[in-house]
């Protein structure tokens, strides 16, 4: 390989999160030693308590921004980082803790904590990009090891990372998985969810939970209409479907609000899709 002029300094930061994204990095077992040769691992508390001061060539940020202190910290990290990458569903789409965005956070604090007066938190759980410019996002809960390695490889080689943004469906089909929605009627978020997991759930005959967040052009309106008419889900069942790991991703926010709001549901049942299904079913008459 070409000789590195210097080993890039890598920092890994944690915000409101479960640490699963950092574990994805540690899970790169075969590549871990090599990574520690190619990068100067300057700040990665989950792996080592040895800390090297900034600035950093590459910062990987895990977790969502949920407190005033975290707002200050993400700005400080941005100032010290040449490239800042948001890693995982929390850092890219608010994480599951973003369900608070749809409720009164004071009410929630009283339910969860014995002494809520000690909890200083923001009203919303938001991705890093809500506060600072983010150079690249690696989605997923947790992110894909393959995508993380592809990003790091591309970074080292100075090329564009090849990380697709299409639907999970394409992965299912590439792998020869039989569609759980079509063949078993299981509601599946795959058609509106971004690739990255290698179609993990459908491979085990489960519907997609949307861990990688919205794909590049998600048509949640059409998919929701199908769930209501053909999978027999009630509108209130659609809300938690979209409000999970990527609750604050704009396309899923819109989808969940549409389902939570009776007018939105009315619009869905009057959509061209629903009308076409009803027309066809009344025209066919027979099975």
């Amino acid at each position: 390989m070409p000789r590195q002029r210097h080993r890039p300094k890598l920092a890994v930061w944690k915000f409101a999160s479960c640490d699963g994204c950092q574990l994805t990095l540690l899970d790169c077992e075969d590549e871990l030693l090599l990574m520690s040769e190619l990068f100067e691992i300057a700040y990665f508390l989950e792996a080592s308590s040895a800390v090297v001061r900034g600035p950093y060539d590459l910062s990987l940020v895990e977790g969502s921004i949920t407190t005033p202190e975290e707002v200050e910290r993400i700005h400080a990290i941005r100032r010290q980082s040449r490239i800042l990458v948001a890693m995982g569903a929390c850092a890219t789409a608010g994480g599951i803790q973003a369900v608070r965005n749809f409720a009164d956070v004071e009410d929630m604090k009283r339910v969860v904590y014995a002494s809520p007066e000690y909890v200083r938190t923001l009203e919303h759980s938001l991705p890093a990009s809500a506060y600072v410019p983010v150079d690249f996002e690696l989605p997923g809960c947790p992110p894909s090891k393959a995508q993380v390695l592809e990003f790091l490889t591309a970074f080292l080689q100075g090329r564009r990372p090849s990380i697709p943004t299409h639907s999970v469906c394409i992965d299912c089909k590439r792998q020869g998985v039989v569609c759980v929605m079509v063949a078993e009627g299981i509601p599946c978020l795959g058609p509106v969810t971004r690739t990255g997991c290698d179609a993990l759930c459908p491979r085990y005959r489960r519907g997609c939970y949307g861990c990688f967040g919205p794909m590049e052009s998600p048509n949640t309106e059409s998919l929701s209409a199908w769930f209501l008419v053909r999978s027999g889900l009630a509108p209130q069942q659609l809300v938690p479907l979209y409000r999970s790991f990527n609750a604050a991703a704009p396309a899923f926010v819109e989808a969940s609000q549409r389902s939570a709001d009776p007018i939105g549901v009315q619009q869905a049942t009057e959509s061209p899709w629903t009308q076409a299904v009803n027309e066809r079913e009344s025209a066919n008459g027979e099975p």
Binding site: M1, T153, I170, S222
Partner: peptide, 30 residues
């Protein structure tokens, strides 16, 4: 308005043949 742009139709089509070619490398580029 109904299309999910998910790509299932082309993946199951017996004649859709389009492909993309990309180069993949390991961490060291060797």
């Amino acid at each position: 308005a109904r299309c999910l742009t998910c790509g299932n139709c082309t993946m199951v089509c017996p004649t859709c043949f389009c492909f993309s070619v990309e180069d993949r490398s390991d961490l060291t580029g060797s």
